[in-house]
Computed example of a mutant assay.
Amino acid sequence: MTGRRRRTAVLISGRGSNMAALLDAAADPAYPAEIVLVLSNRPGAGGLARAEAAGIPTRVIDHKAYDGRAAFDAALDAALEEAGIELVVLAGFMRLLTPGFTEKWLGRMINIHPSLLPAFKGVHVHEQALAGGVRFSGCSVHFVTADMDAGPIIGQAVVPVVPGESPDDLAARTLAAEHRLYPAAVALVASGEAALADGRTVYAGDAWTRVTLT
């Protein structure tokens, strides 16, 4: 771990609540990730205004303006390179990325998902959890690979399922856990205390304890 902060981009598609948690953490000069760009594929994403209010440069690359995923990903990659990005953090970024893009950024791009992976991938996660009758759910931070929600896990937070609660109830409590877990996981990757090696996550010392939340 060095004192230099890694230049980080946060990619969003919506309101950016996890982005806001990351911005709060990164406001500390000692935090190892410096958020230098918030980028959205949707011009009206609510998180853009929140980032601008925090003084973070923003950019929109509207996926609807491109003919296919490969063309969009090429534009996205160019924007990240132009900004000198070292770490890409997906925070509610609702686009499937091409294998070529994920391969280029392998080990330098992470995502958060609102379940205890590998359970309940994809969408409608909380409905899946309640329908499955699980007693615990939660959230997971993982390295992004070509397969959706399947990359090596960096950290997880456990959220008990309350009998009779709605998907919205579970989603709200899970989101609160995400806001604790994601800044901790981003810090580990940015500092080099968690890294991707030979298809799995490796940690420096007991760093994994900081991203194992209950």
Rank of each mutant, 00 (worst) to 15 (best):
D24V: 14
A25V: 10
A25Y: 13
A26I: 12
D28W: 10
D28A: 12
D28L: 06
D28K: 13
D28H: 10
A30M: 06
A30E: 15
A30L: 11
Y31G: 09
Y31I: 13
A33T: 04
A33F: 03
A33Y: 01
E34W: 08
V36K: 07
V36P: 01
L37S: 11
L37F: 06
L37Q: 10
V38H: 08
L39F: 09
S40A: 15
G44H: 08
G44E: 11
A45T: 06
A45M: 02
A45S: 01
A45D: 08
A45R: 13
G46M: 08
G46Y: 02
G46K: 09
G46P: 02
G47D: 06
A49T: 14
R50V: 12
R50W: 04
A51Q: 05
A54M: 13
A54D: 09
G55F: 11
I56L: 12
I56S: 06
P57L: 08
P57M: 05
P57Q: 04
T58M: 02
T58I: 03
R59P: 01
I61P: 00
D62S: 14
D62M: 09
H63K: 12
H63I: 01
A65R: 15
A65L: 14
A65Q: 15
A65Y: 02
Y66W: 15
Y66H: 15
Y66S: 12
G68P: 01
A70W: 02
A70I: 06
F72L: 07
F72R: 11
D73P: 08
A74C: 04
A74H: 08
A74Q: 15
D77V: 08
D77P: 03
D77K: 11
A78G: 11
A78V: 06
A78Y: 09
A78F: 07
A79W: 05
E82R: 12
A83E: 15
G84D: 12
L87P: 10
L87R: 09
V88C: 12
V88M: 12
G92E: 00
L97V: 03
L97S: 03
T98I: 03
P99K: 05
P99M: 05
P99S: 07
G100V: 07
F101R: 13
F101T: 13
T102F: 00
T102Y: 02
E103I: 00
W105P: 00
L106I: 07
G107N: 14
G107Y: 05
R108Q: 13
R108D: 03
M109W: 01
I110R: 00
N111K: 11
I112F: 14
H113Y: 03
H113M: 11
P114Q: 07
P114E: 05
L117C: 03
L117W: 01
P118W: 08
A119F: 11
A119W: 11
G122F: 13
V123P: 00
V123C: 04
H124L: 12
H124G: 10
V125I: 14
V125W: 13
H126C: 01
H126N: 04
Q128I: 02
Q128T: 03
L130M: 01
L130E: 04
A131M: 06
A131Q: 14
A131I: 07
G132S: 15
G133H: 00
V134K: 03
V134E: 05
F136C: 00
S137E: 09
S137Y: 13
C139F: 07
S140K: 10
S140H: 06
V141R: 02
V141M: 13
H142L: 05
